[in-house]
Design a protein around this nucleic acid. Sequence first.
DNA 1: TATTTGCGTCAGCCATGTTGACGTATTTTG
DNA 2: CAAAATACGTCAACATGGCTGACGCAAATA
Lengths: 170, 170
Amino acid sequence: MADANILNAGNTAASAQFLREAEIRRGIELLYFGYTNMVRGADGLLDRHGLGRAHHRALYFIARRPAMPVGDLLALLNITKQSLSRVLADLQGRGLVIQAVGQRDRRQRLLELTPEGATLEAALFEELRTGMAGAYAQAGQNAVTGFWAVLTGLIPAVDRPMIQELQAGL
Amino acid sequence: MADANILNAGNTAASAQFLREAEIRRGIELLYFGYTNMVRGADGLLDRHGLGRAHHRALYFIARRPAMPVGDLLALLNITKQSLSRVLADLQGRGLVIQAVGQRDRRQRLLELTPEGATLEAALFEELRTGMAGAYAQAGQNAVTGFWAVLTGLIPAVDRPMIQELQAGL
DNA sequence: TATTTGCGTCAGCCATGTTGACGTATTTTG
DNA sequence: CAAAATACGTCAACATGGCTGACGCAAATA
């Protein structure tokens, strides 16, 4: 990160060039196409299971943070509980997810994948992994670090701890 | 790009570490949150105009490539013409977009923003620009290059020329 | 004990994607 | 030149996944 603040060095000419509209638009476009291509990778498998992208997101985060309370998942997904309830009802009805009463707080419902849910999530992850691993390999380790840095900067600072916690202990 | 192929040097230990699941999941998560936070930035302004994200995407690309034929926009958005037609009808009804008969091929309908459409698109772009410029500035130029490289790798090679053309002449 | 919190649910609506079937003008091809 | 392909539009029906609003209940907290 030696150059992390290259723009703040008072070099207005470099700054003006660096922040040119074309560079911003390039980022917007690559982010749009990169994201949509990534998520599209799992659509076929989801279809075969009669699930949609909303189900995938829920499965993903439950796999990532076992025993997550419903409220935490709501905060991550940034949707209403009514929207999530439809998805969770589907997943529980298919035996992919189960809930347990919280020990510390018995009002909480802690979400877990069943073995079947874990198997499906692993297969869905594999679809994403292929694309991401290929992109990492093509771009190189140094590029990956930059990729993370820019994306982190797009996330409001208040939300970063919540996302950082997903990484904890891995 | 001196390190672009660091992984292909036959160092299987480094490769195994680099491609570990945690790194992949980190990329997936940052890409998800980065993308959703970026697009959310324009929601308020869109709401005030009674438009949705689908309208924004169309406005964005029409601004980016004036005189784009409908078919090209369909290819970029990767949706059906029926879906796009609703959006374009809205935009034309509000006087934000107009169509012109193609000169070379009179079957084509070339899309253009009206002055009002251009004004709105500029305001929407400004909402995105703020977030992206901040992320670029925080991360540094070198990180931005890596950001672009990884995202490009996520896009199927066959689609890259189409996206590259958006940059042409800017 | 009163209030707040975590979660669930019913009901209805909206935005935006899909398929399928047709129609028309224009260009291209055999 | 006639036939086929292409670019675009449209009608109709449906699926997914968001939303708001209104309630209810059990458990934790003040």
